[in-house]
């Protein structure tokens, strides 16, 4: 029955055209059981369109989506049964209570018992407010109710669109822990879209990077997103420091920036050592800043790599 028993999601040649515009083109990726898969790309790269195709809201122009071995377009009911999702915002019926919302979705799937509803409510820690109307909920609570709704029918694959969007820092941390627990303890595969590099690094096992509707790269998150982050030095005198940094063996890509500072690339464990060398040479160091690489940096790096290859 299933081609890839351990592959929960297999996407091949996925393309969507609206009019003459190609929103996404020829996407291919797979998600294994219990894997947290990041779908990383800037806004407008085609992430939401892809997600809408994965959950059957949009029909692909070409390509195939297989969920738990079932083809989404030919065996919609069997395939969609294994998916739980939140597309964009967790929009539930504001005039119903949390429990009524869950009961409503339970009536649309086979085999969700009242005990299961209680269970997911406990899982997302909404017991106290579940019988109040959703319009009185905070965004974080709506997000949790959204997840409860997605988990209700024991899906194999959870699809979350920007799950930490709009949450406060505590909420973000909670959400991350929650997602890891789902994947690593309950064996649910999770597909997460995000435009925040840092988040994908923290959460995901593997990542696909999408840019202008195409996947630039897919792979292990640490391989793809590591590398030496740039370090920015505020020093004086500038010229002397520049000269010294250029001459040191572990320092690459030395560049003088406009605001009286120098950008370099170097391994993290060498920073203290280089700092000492600068001070010994009589150069005043006023600040050392390690920049987190942005998504744009990565794209730049990758697209450059592409054109060279």
């Amino acid at each position: 029955m299933t081609d890839h028993p351990t592959k929960v999601l297999v996407v091949e040649g996925l393309t969507k055209k609206i009019g003459k515009r190609e929103i996404v083109r020829d996407l291919a990726f797979e998600i294994g059981q219990g894997e947290v898969f990041g779908f990383l790309g800037p806004n407008g790269a085609g992430k939401t369109t892809t997600i809408r195709m994965l959950v059957g809201l949009i029909r692909p122009t070409h390509g195939q989506i297989k969920i738990a071995g079932y083809d989404l377009s030919n065996q919609f009911l069997e395939a969609i049964r294994h998916i739980g999702c939140i597309v964009e915002n967790p929009e539930l019926y504001p005039y119903l209570t949390g429990r009524e919302n869950l009961e409503m979705f339970a009536r649309m799937v086979e085999g969700v018992t009242p005990q299961r509803i209680t269970e997911v409510v406990q899982l997302v820690e909404l017991e106290e407010r579940i019988d109040e109307r959703v319009k009185t909920y905070s965004l974080g609570m709506r997000q949790r109710l959204g997840i409860a709704q997605a988990l209700l029918h024991h899906p194999q694959l959870l699809i979350l669109d920007e799950p930490t969007n709009g949450l406060d820092p505590a909420g973000i941390r909670e959400m991350r822990q929650f997602i890891s627990r789902l994947a690593h303890e309950e064996g649910i595969s999770v597909f997460i879209s995000s435009h925040i590099l840092h988040e994908v690094q923290l959460l995901c096992d593997r990542v696909a990077i999408i840019h202008q509707g195409r996947i630039i790269q897919t792979g292990d998150v640490h391989q793809l997103l590591s590398g030496e982050p740039p370090v920015i030095w505020k020093v004086s005198p500038l010229a002397k420091a520049n000269q010294l940094l250029q001459s040191l063996p572990d320092v690459f890509d030395v560049e003088i920036l406009e605001n009286e500072s120098i950008r370099t690339r170097l391994p993290q464990n060498k920073i203290a050592n280089i700092n000492l060398r600068l001070i010994q040479a009589g150069i005043q160091v006023t600040s050392i800043e390690q920049k987190k690489p942005t998504l744009e940096d990565i794209f730049l790096q990758m697209t450059e790599g592409d054109s060279l290859a």
């Binding site: 059957g56 964009e88 929009e91 539930l92 019926y93 979705f105 649309m108 799937v109 086979e110 709704q149």
Partner: peptide, 14 residues
């Protein structure tokens, strides 16, 4: 307009 159509149509119901 409420966005709930996304929840309604991602159930195993035609």
């Amino acid at each position: 307009s409420g966005g709930t159509i996304k929840l309604l149509l991602t159930r195993p119901v035609q």
